[in-house]
Amino acid sequence: MQSADAMFQHVFRNFGLPEDIVSDRGSQFTSRVWGSLCARLGIGVSLSSGYHPQSNGQAERLNQEIGRFLRSYCSREQHQWSEFLPWAEYAQNSLIHSSTGLTPFQCILGYRPTLFPWSGEPSDVPAVEEWYRLSQEVWERAHVRLQRAVRRQRIQVDRRCRPYPSYQKYSLKSLCIADR
Rank of each mutant, 00 (worst) to 15 (best):
Ser3Leu: 07
Asp5Gly: 08
Ala6Met: 05
Gln9Ala: 10
Asp20Trp: 12
Ile21Asn: 10
Val22Trp: 14
Val22Gln: 15
Asp24Asn: 13
Gln28Pro: 08
Ser31Asn: 05
Arg32Asn: 01
Trp34Glu: 13
Gly35Ile: 11
Leu37Ser: 07
Cys38Ala: 14
Leu41Gly: 01
Ile43Tyr: 02
Ser46Phe: 04
Ser46Gln: 09
Ser49His: 05
Gly50Leu: 07
Gln54Phe: 03
Ser55Ala: 13
Gln58Asn: 01
Ala59Gln: 14
Arg61Tyr: 13
Leu62Arg: 03
Gln64Glu: 08
Ile66Val: 08
Arg68Ala: 12
Phe69Trp: 12
Cys74Arg: 07
Glu77Ala: 13
Gln78Asp: 06
Pro86Lys: 01
Trp87Phe: 10
Ser94Thr: 12
Ile96Tyr: 11
Ser98Lys: 09
Ser98Trp: 14
Thr103Asn: 05
Pro104Asp: 09
Gln106Trp: 07
Ile108Gly: 08
Gly110Pro: 05
Thr114Phe: 00
Leu115Pro: 00
Phe116Val: 10
Gly120Leu: 09
Val125Met: 03
Val128Trp: 09
Glu129Tyr: 00
Tyr132Ala: 12
Arg133Asn: 15
Arg133Pro: 02
Gln136Trp: 03
Val138Arg: 11
Glu140Gln: 12
Arg141Ser: 03
His143Arg: 02
Val144Ser: 01
Arg145Trp: 05
Gln147Phe: 00
Gln153His: 04
Ile155Ser: 00
Tyr164Ala: 14
Pro165Ile: 02
Gln168Met: 10
Lys173Asn: 14
Lys173Thr: 15
Ser174Glu: 15
Ala178Asp: 05
Asp179Arg: 06
